[in-house]
Protein backbone atom coordinates (compact mmCIF):
# COMPACT_ATOMS: atom_id res chain seq x y z
CA UNK A 1 0.00 0.00 0.00
CA UNK A 2 3.03 2.26 0.31
CA UNK A 3 3.40 3.06 -3.34
CA UNK A 4 4.66 6.49 -4.22
CA UNK A 5 2.23 8.00 -6.61
CA UNK A 6 2.40 11.57 -7.92
CA UNK A 7 0.01 13.90 -6.14
CA UNK A 8 -2.62 14.85 -8.71
CA UNK A 9 -3.64 11.29 -9.71
CA UNK A 10 -3.92 10.33 -6.02
CA UNK A 11 -6.33 13.13 -5.29
CA UNK A 12 -8.33 12.07 -8.32
CA UNK A 13 -8.38 8.46 -7.22
CA UNK A 14 -9.65 9.42 -3.81
CA UNK A 15 -12.44 11.48 -5.31
CA UNK A 16 -13.28 8.46 -7.41
CA UNK A 17 -13.29 6.37 -4.27
CA UNK A 18 -15.61 8.68 -2.49
CA UNK A 19 -17.96 8.51 -5.43
CA UNK A 20 -17.71 4.77 -5.04
CA UNK A 21 -18.76 4.80 -1.38
CA UNK A 22 -22.41 4.84 -2.33
CA UNK A 23 -21.89 1.66 -4.36
CA UNK A 24 -19.63 0.09 -1.80
CA UNK A 25 -22.15 0.40 1.00
CA UNK A 26 -25.00 -0.57 -1.30
CA UNK A 27 -23.12 -3.74 -2.16
CA UNK A 28 -22.60 -4.50 1.50
CA UNK A 29 -26.22 -3.89 2.40
CA UNK A 30 -27.69 -7.35 1.68
CA UNK A 31 -25.00 -9.08 3.72
CA UNK A 32 -25.44 -6.59 6.54
CA UNK A 33 -29.19 -7.20 6.55
CA UNK A 34 -28.74 -10.97 6.70
CA UNK A 35 -26.23 -10.46 9.48
CA UNK A 36 -28.59 -8.23 11.43
CA UNK A 37 -31.51 -10.62 11.04
CA UNK A 38 -29.78 -13.82 11.99
CA UNK A 39 -26.71 -13.07 14.02
CA UNK A 40 -26.97 -9.88 16.05
CA UNK A 41 -29.57 -11.19 18.47
CA UNK A 42 -28.04 -14.65 18.91
CA UNK A 43 -24.56 -13.26 19.51
CA UNK A 44 -25.79 -10.68 22.00
CA UNK A 45 -28.06 -13.18 23.71
CA UNK A 46 -25.32 -15.76 24.07
CA UNK A 47 -22.99 -13.24 25.67
CA UNK A 48 -25.50 -11.58 27.96
CA UNK A 49 -27.22 -14.71 29.25
CA UNK A 50 -23.94 -16.48 29.86
CA UNK A 51 -23.76 -14.36 33.02
CA UNK A 52 -27.16 -15.46 34.18
CA UNK A 53 -29.06 -18.44 35.40
CA UNK A 54 -31.75 -18.96 32.78
CA UNK A 55 -34.18 -21.77 32.03
CA UNK A 56 -34.84 -20.47 28.53
CA UNK A 57 -38.33 -19.25 29.34
CA UNK A 58 -38.63 -17.38 32.61
CA UNK A 59 -36.63 -14.19 33.06
CA UNK A 60 -32.87 -14.77 33.40
CA UNK A 61 -31.31 -14.10 36.81
CA UNK A 62 -27.90 -12.45 36.86
CA UNK A 63 -25.32 -14.60 38.60
CA UNK A 64 -22.02 -13.06 37.59
CA UNK A 65 -19.28 -15.39 36.44
CA UNK A 66 -20.77 -18.36 38.30
CA UNK A 67 -21.31 -20.32 35.06
CA UNK A 68 -17.70 -19.82 34.06
CA UNK A 69 -16.42 -20.81 37.48
CA UNK A 70 -18.53 -23.96 37.31
CA UNK A 71 -17.25 -24.70 33.83
CA UNK A 72 -13.61 -24.39 34.71
CA UNK A 73 -14.03 -26.62 37.72
CA UNK A 74 -15.84 -29.24 35.64
CA UNK A 75 -13.98 -32.38 34.72
CA UNK A 76 -15.89 -32.91 31.48
CA UNK A 77 -15.24 -29.35 30.34
CA UNK A 78 -11.51 -29.57 30.92
CA UNK A 79 -11.41 -32.91 29.12
CA UNK A 80 -13.36 -31.38 26.25
CA UNK A 81 -10.78 -28.59 26.02
CA UNK A 82 -7.95 -31.10 25.96
CA UNK A 83 -9.71 -33.07 23.24
CA UNK A 84 -10.27 -29.92 21.22
CA UNK A 85 -6.57 -29.15 21.43
CA UNK A 86 -5.62 -32.65 20.25
CA UNK A 87 -8.20 -32.63 17.49
CA UNK A 88 -6.95 -29.20 16.49
CA UNK A 89 -3.45 -30.55 16.03
CA UNK A 90 -4.76 -33.50 14.04
CA UNK A 91 -6.87 -31.14 11.92
CA UNK A 92 -4.03 -28.77 11.11
CA UNK A 93 -1.34 -31.31 10.41
CA UNK A 94 -3.09 -34.46 9.23
CA UNK A 95 -6.44 -33.33 7.87
CA UNK A 96 -5.27 -30.21 6.05
CA UNK A 97 -2.00 -31.94 5.23
CA UNK A 98 -3.79 -34.81 3.58
CA UNK A 99 -6.12 -32.50 1.66
CA UNK A 100 -3.18 -30.47 0.40
CA UNK A 101 -1.31 -33.63 -0.56
CA UNK A 102 -4.27 -34.78 -2.63
CA UNK A 103 -4.50 -31.35 -4.24
CA UNK A 104 -0.85 -31.45 -5.27
CA UNK A 105 -1.24 -35.02 -6.54
CA UNK A 106 -4.27 -34.06 -8.60
CA UNK A 107 -2.48 -30.95 -9.88
CA UNK A 108 0.11 -33.21 -11.52
CA UNK A 109 -2.83 -34.61 -13.48
CA UNK A 110 -2.05 -38.32 -13.10
CA UNK A 111 -4.34 -40.77 -14.87
CA UNK A 112 -7.81 -40.73 -13.30
CA UNK A 113 -7.31 -37.41 -11.53
CA UNK A 114 -10.67 -36.06 -12.63
CA UNK A 115 -12.41 -39.18 -11.47
CA UNK A 116 -10.64 -39.06 -8.12
CA UNK A 117 -11.53 -35.44 -7.63
CA UNK A 118 -15.16 -36.16 -8.47
CA UNK A 119 -15.38 -39.18 -6.18
CA UNK A 120 -13.60 -37.46 -3.30
CA UNK A 121 -16.49 -35.04 -3.13
CA UNK A 122 -19.08 -37.75 -2.48
CA UNK A 123 -18.59 -38.05 1.29
CA UNK A 124 -19.24 -34.32 1.55
CA UNK A 125 -22.46 -34.64 -0.38
CA UNK A 126 -23.76 -36.63 2.56
CA UNK A 127 -24.68 -35.08 5.89
CA UNK A 128 -22.40 -35.47 8.88
CA UNK A 129 -25.24 -37.24 10.68
CA UNK A 130 -25.68 -39.86 7.97
CA UNK A 131 -21.94 -40.29 7.78
CA UNK A 132 -21.67 -40.82 11.54
CA UNK A 133 -24.42 -43.41 11.34
CA UNK A 134 -22.60 -45.23 8.56
CA UNK A 135 -19.42 -45.27 10.59
CA UNK A 136 -21.21 -46.62 13.61
CA UNK A 137 -22.06 -49.63 11.50
CA UNK A 138 -18.63 -49.90 9.94
CA UNK A 139 -16.90 -49.90 13.33
CA UNK A 140 -19.43 -52.25 14.93
CA UNK A 141 -17.65 -55.13 16.59
CA UNK A 142 -20.08 -57.83 15.62
CA UNK A 143 -21.26 -57.09 12.12
CA UNK A 144 -19.12 -54.10 11.16
CA UNK A 145 -17.09 -54.20 7.97
CA UNK A 146 -13.77 -53.34 9.56
CA UNK A 147 -13.73 -56.19 12.03
CA UNK A 148 -15.23 -58.42 9.36
CA UNK A 149 -12.13 -57.82 7.26
CA UNK A 150 -9.74 -58.17 10.20
CA UNK A 151 -11.35 -61.46 11.18
CA UNK A 152 -10.41 -62.94 7.83
CA UNK A 153 -6.84 -62.87 9.17
CA UNK A 154 -7.49 -63.20 12.88
CA UNK A 155 -10.78 -64.99 13.55
CA UNK A 156 -10.84 -64.15 17.27
CA UNK A 157 -10.39 -60.42 16.81
CA UNK A 158 -12.85 -58.26 18.72
CA UNK A 159 -12.64 -54.54 19.48
CA UNK A 160 -15.49 -52.10 20.08
CA UNK A 161 -13.76 -49.23 18.31
CA UNK A 162 -16.09 -46.51 19.51
CA UNK A 163 -16.34 -47.70 23.10
CA UNK A 164 -12.90 -48.87 24.08
CA UNK A 165 -10.06 -46.69 25.26
CA UNK A 166 -7.84 -45.57 23.54
CA UNK A 167 -9.51 -46.44 20.23
CA UNK A 168 -12.61 -44.30 20.66
CA UNK A 169 -10.75 -41.02 20.22
CA UNK A 170 -9.23 -42.23 16.98
CA UNK A 171 -12.44 -43.84 15.77
CA UNK A 172 -14.17 -40.48 16.09
CA UNK A 173 -11.18 -38.81 14.45
CA UNK A 174 -11.37 -41.24 11.56
CA UNK A 175 -14.92 -40.19 10.70
CA UNK A 176 -13.56 -36.88 9.38
CA UNK A 177 -9.79 -37.24 9.14
CA UNK A 178 -9.44 -38.20 5.49
CA UNK A 179 -12.52 -36.47 4.16
CA UNK A 180 -10.63 -33.35 3.26
CA UNK A 181 -12.13 -32.63 -0.14
CA UNK A 182 -12.89 -29.02 0.79
CA UNK A 183 -9.21 -28.47 1.51
CA UNK A 184 -8.32 -30.15 -1.77
CA UNK A 185 -10.79 -28.02 -3.73
CA UNK A 186 -9.66 -24.74 -2.22
CA UNK A 187 -5.95 -25.50 -2.60
CA UNK A 188 -6.43 -26.87 -6.11
CA UNK A 189 -8.29 -23.69 -7.01
CA UNK A 190 -5.32 -21.61 -5.92
CA UNK A 191 -2.88 -23.88 -7.72
CA UNK A 192 -4.83 -23.54 -10.95
CA UNK A 193 -4.81 -19.78 -10.47
CA UNK A 194 -1.03 -19.51 -10.39
CA UNK A 195 -0.09 -17.71 -13.62
CA UNK A 196 1.60 -20.14 -16.00
CA UNK A 197 4.26 -17.52 -16.81
CA UNK A 198 5.43 -17.73 -13.21
CA UNK A 199 5.88 -21.49 -13.34
CA UNK A 200 7.48 -21.28 -16.78
CA UNK A 201 9.91 -18.66 -15.57
CA UNK A 202 10.87 -20.81 -12.61
CA UNK A 203 11.35 -23.81 -14.88
CA UNK A 204 13.62 -21.81 -17.17
CA UNK A 205 15.62 -20.83 -14.10
CA UNK A 206 16.12 -24.57 -13.56
CA UNK A 207 13.67 -25.32 -10.75
CA UNK A 208 12.86 -29.01 -10.46
CA UNK A 209 9.51 -30.48 -9.44
CA UNK A 210 10.03 -30.38 -5.68
CA UNK A 211 11.64 -26.95 -5.74
CA UNK A 212 8.73 -25.69 -7.77
CA UNK A 213 6.34 -26.99 -5.16
CA UNK A 214 8.30 -25.71 -2.19
CA UNK A 215 9.28 -22.29 -3.43
CA UNK A 216 6.48 -21.26 -5.77
CA UNK A 217 3.33 -23.31 -5.43
CA UNK A 218 3.15 -23.86 -1.69
CA UNK A 219 3.74 -20.20 -0.78
CA UNK A 220 1.20 -19.05 -3.34
CA UNK A 221 -1.35 -21.45 -1.86
CA UNK A 222 -0.88 -20.14 1.64
CA UNK A 223 -4.18 -18.26 1.49
CA UNK A 224 -6.00 -21.44 0.54
CA UNK A 225 -4.20 -23.43 3.20
CA UNK A 226 -4.98 -20.77 5.78
CA UNK A 227 -8.63 -20.83 4.78
CA UNK A 228 -8.61 -24.62 5.02
CA UNK A 229 -7.08 -24.53 8.47
CA UNK A 230 -9.70 -22.07 9.63
CA UNK A 231 -12.50 -24.20 8.20
CA UNK A 232 -11.09 -27.33 9.67
CA UNK A 233 -10.44 -25.85 13.11
CA UNK A 234 -13.81 -24.18 13.40
CA UNK A 235 -15.40 -27.46 12.32
CA UNK A 236 -13.56 -29.12 15.21
CA UNK A 237 -14.85 -26.53 17.65
CA UNK A 238 -18.41 -27.18 16.55
CA UNK A 239 -18.08 -30.94 16.13
CA UNK A 240 -21.36 -32.42 17.35
CA UNK A 241 -23.07 -35.06 15.20
CA UNK A 242 -19.99 -37.19 14.72
CA UNK A 243 -19.81 -37.61 18.49
CA UNK A 244 -23.45 -37.47 19.56
CA UNK A 245 -24.36 -40.27 17.17
CA UNK A 246 -21.41 -42.47 18.05
CA UNK A 247 -19.68 -42.26 21.44
CA UNK A 248 -21.69 -39.44 23.06
CA UNK A 249 -18.39 -38.35 24.59
CA UNK A 250 -17.26 -41.62 26.15
CA UNK A 251 -15.57 -43.78 27.16
CA UNK A 252 -14.39 -41.95 30.23
CA UNK A 253 -15.01 -38.55 28.54
CA UNK A 254 -12.25 -39.31 26.05
CA UNK A 255 -14.29 -37.97 23.14
CA UNK A 256 -16.15 -35.21 24.99
CA UNK A 257 -16.58 -32.00 23.01
CA UNK A 258 -17.82 -28.52 23.81
CA UNK A 259 -21.03 -28.72 21.73
CA UNK A 260 -21.96 -31.97 23.49
CA UNK A 261 -21.64 -30.13 26.80
CA UNK A 262 -23.69 -27.27 25.41
CA UNK A 263 -26.50 -29.54 24.29
CA UNK A 264 -26.40 -31.50 27.56
CA UNK A 265 -26.82 -28.24 29.45
CA UNK A 266 -29.82 -27.34 27.30
CA UNK A 267 -31.27 -30.76 28.13
CA UNK A 268 -31.11 -29.70 31.77
CA UNK A 269 -32.65 -26.27 30.97
CA UNK A 270 -29.46 -24.50 31.94
CA UNK A 271 -29.29 -22.02 29.10
CA UNK A 272 -26.98 -19.70 30.98
CA UNK A 273 -24.43 -22.45 31.45
CA UNK A 274 -24.93 -23.62 27.86
CA UNK A 275 -24.30 -20.12 26.59
CA UNK A 276 -21.17 -19.83 28.70
CA UNK A 277 -19.92 -22.85 26.76
CA UNK A 278 -21.05 -21.04 23.61
CA UNK A 279 -19.08 -17.93 24.55
CA UNK A 280 -15.93 -19.96 25.10
CA UNK A 281 -16.39 -21.74 21.75
CA UNK A 282 -16.77 -18.30 20.24
CA UNK A 283 -13.62 -16.93 21.87
CA UNK A 284 -11.56 -19.94 20.90
CA UNK A 285 -12.77 -19.53 17.34
CA UNK A 286 -11.85 -15.87 17.40
CA UNK A 287 -8.35 -16.71 18.56
CA UNK A 288 -8.04 -19.25 15.76
CA UNK A 289 -9.18 -16.70 13.18
CA UNK A 290 -6.73 -14.12 14.44
CA UNK A 291 -3.72 -16.40 14.68
CA UNK A 292 -4.24 -18.11 11.34
CA UNK A 293 -4.93 -14.83 9.56
CA UNK A 294 -1.69 -13.45 10.91
CA UNK A 295 0.38 -16.57 10.37
CA UNK A 296 -0.67 -16.94 6.75
CA UNK A 297 -0.73 -13.23 5.92
CA UNK A 298 -4.12 -13.86 4.39
CA UNK A 299 -5.04 -10.24 3.99
CA UNK A 300 -2.45 -9.57 1.33
CA UNK A 301 -2.94 -9.96 -2.36
CA UNK A 302 -0.17 -11.72 -4.27
CA UNK A 303 -0.88 -10.31 -7.67
Amino acid sequence: MKKTIPRPPRAKASRLQRANYKWIYLFLLPTVIVFAMFYVIPIAQVFVTSFTQWDGFNAPVFNGVRNYVNLFSSHSFLTALRNLFLWGLVAVFLHVGFGTLVAFVLFQRPRGWKFTRAVFMIPNVISAAAWAMIYRFIFNDDFGVLNGIIRIFDPDFSVQWFYKSPWAFWAVTFTWLFYAVIVTLIVLGDLLNIPTELTEAARIDGATGWQLIRCIQLPLCRGAIGTSIICSLTARISMYEQIALTTAGGPDYQTMSLPILLVNAITDYRYGYANAVGVLMFLIGLAVLYVVNRAFRMDESDY
Binding site: T247, G249, G250, D252, N264, T267
Partner: peptide, 13 residues
Protein backbone atom coordinates in the same frame (compact mmCIF):
# COMPACT_ATOMS: atom_id res chain seq x y z
CA UNK B 1 -28.44 -34.85 30.86
CA UNK B 2 -26.98 -37.57 33.08
CA UNK B 3 -29.79 -39.89 32.03
CA UNK B 4 -29.50 -39.05 28.34
CA UNK B 5 -25.76 -38.88 27.99
CA UNK B 6 -23.49 -39.65 30.93
CA UNK B 7 -25.08 -42.89 32.10
CA UNK B 8 -24.81 -44.63 28.74
CA UNK B 9 -21.41 -43.12 28.16
CA UNK B 10 -20.00 -44.49 31.41
CA UNK B 11 -21.34 -48.03 30.96
CA UNK B 12 -18.70 -49.36 28.52
CA UNK B 13 -15.94 -48.57 31.00
Amino acid sequence: SVANADFGMLLPS
